[in-house]
Amino acid sequence: MNDIAKNTLEMAVATALGAQLLNWTSDVHGNHSGWVKLGATAELLALAPLLADCGARLMTVTAYRNDKFGRLESDGHEIAYHFDLEGVVLTVSVCLPDDPPRVASITPWFKNADWNEREFAELYGIVLEDHPNPRRLFLDKGLDAAILNRLVPLSTMMNGASTTTLWEKVFAGKQLPEWAKGGNN
């Protein structure tokens, strides 16, 4: 759709990292998505200023585990940074080192990285380097750190969110069964 933006992003990636690192896909409407895989976080710091210079906008950041429930001891984290330039999407994925997983902040070039970085830090226990305000974003400090690094069974999640109100209405005027009292939640 937007060949100028596509070429600009290609130039930025080639300048920072060399050629042949960027793959393109497109949807049925011809919207382009670029995909870059980085092996080291230092490469992210080489690319970020060039993307900022060409006017790219950070849309959001997704952190994830290769094994989503953390069942494998040393199955690492990756972070996907999603940028936009005039309708063209560029996703830059970077593998993080283990023990602890850490990554440098890109807030010097993208101000709106602030909240995104704080969010993945609290969810996955990823250490932020040189972040201007590295406190938690959404989760209270009384809650467990890095909650998405481990399996919390769906039944546990749902029990935690349930109340006995429904069953009290169902059994209105009758004896509430033991199982409906929520004592095991």
């Binding site: 896909t25 949807d27 995909w35 849309m59 959001t60 997704t62 996907a80 999603h82 999407v89 996703t91």
Partner: peptide
């Protein structure tokens, strides 16, 4: 694999990965 999609919601851009 992986994919993205976007749309213009009433409040602005919604992004899914």
């Amino acid at each position: 694999g992986e994919a993205v999609a976007r749309s213009e919601a009433p409040r602005g851009e919604v992004f899914y990965y």
